[in-house]
Design a protein around this nucleic acid. Sequence first.
DNA 1: AATGCTCTCTAACGGCGTCAGAGGCATCGA
DNA 2: TCGATGCCTCTGACGCCGTTAGAGAGCATT
Lengths: 227, 227
Amino acid sequence: MPKNSSADQQVRSVWLRAQRGGRGEPPLTIDRIVEAAVALLDEDGIDRLTMRRLAERLGVVAPSLYWHVDTKDDVLDLAVDAIFTGQPPAAAGTWRDDVTAVLTAWRAAMLRHPWATAVPARRRPTIGPNFLSWMEFLQARLAAAGFTGAGHAAATWALYNHVMGSAASEAALQISDAERRVGQEKLRADRDRYPTLAANGYLYDDDWDGSFTLGLAYLLDGLQAQL
Amino acid sequence: MPKNSSADQQVRSVWLRAQRGGRGEPPLTIDRIVEAAVALLDEDGIDRLTMRRLAERLGVVAPSLYWHVDTKDDVLDLAVDAIFTGQPPAAAGTWRDDVTAVLTAWRAAMLRHPWATAVPARRRPTIGPNFLSWMEFLQARLAAAGFTGAGHAAATWALYNHVMGSAASEAALQISDAERRVGQEKLRADRDRYPTLAANGYLYDDDWDGSFTLGLAYLLDGLQAQL
DNA sequence: AATGCTCTCTAACGGCGTCAGAGGCATCGA
DNA sequence: TCGATGCCTCTGACGCCGTTAGAGAGCATT
């Protein structure tokens, strides 16, 4: 083994190599990166997603990620689209039933991954292929119901804003009971200035699901009246 | 002038004092900080607001700001509330007219300061005193119209989400014509998968004002039908 | 055996939010 | 007049961030 002895200095590298590129674990791929990013975001939230922590979870150092993605924002865009994997519910009922079904599933996906509500606010248009499939379903169902032109656009945006806004509001207001109590007390202390808020309790909806469903019903009533 | 001569070493300080604490410019105050923050945000956007740049604009270094505010997030919260200074429009018509007026003014304030749409997404509940005044007006007008309980909460949130969501969507989608064209072309290239989007052009509303107004009309129709 | 490609590495840069603690300045009681 | 007190801004630094330059390991092809 002249080669081995001549390469003694590399013996250590052999072990490292076996650890590194071993056939045991798959190499770094976009899919593995996105999967790890979603897991990290679910566990710790959007503020704690850093390239270094993401890399560490993949057994790698941060700059290695940059061979696969251009920027951290790319990772976020990919992560958001990943939560829309799978087909939207199939058309199965009246346009109203189908729209309700797709928006309910959409909202559930956002609430399972609350960090996703913060990504569009960074001025990154949500245009991943999976998300577009859901949007296509929504728009197609509205078109089939008879909406055209400006009415079609307005209906699309109103429904989009309702589902994104309600998920974002709910995610943003998941605050502790202590904070809630303090906020409510401050409102009551200022009841001269905010009589209605003090009485009704802005910020502290105790039935997010119900408000979403009821609000959607109002909106759909208004849309239906237009047809 | 024995004092002057005995204090020769301080002559220079006198000038510095005149520059610094002189009656010419007001010292550092929360109001001055917030004013500068809003200006900086308007000019350069939320990503370019840093404590160092904010301090520089005020002729000061970054750590000095921390005597007046606890964190950078405090500055953002104060800046958002600052764009709601002034009273909301007074009650002057039907509940529907008044709600439309307050939401229109609210949306205009957000669009004048598009960075404000990104702050709630950082899970910072919008609860500044000025903003609460607008919310109080909205909720009071809805209560006077006859909404109570779950219906009142759902109506509030639906309207809140409509105005915040449409401002956020519009702000996020202020992208260049070039990007718009590329996006539209990609949709058309994929028209098998996204036939409706390709035909109608998701993302590229050319009449944000119209969609807001029309969508709001749909929602108000639905609400009115409930009374 | 040499070449070139794919992928991960080390090292570093400039910038960030924030903190500890020094020190200037005004005010006020003795 | 002087010393103490408290308000406010400073210098200097820490640890973290996203990202880049460029070296080098391993593999496939020639």
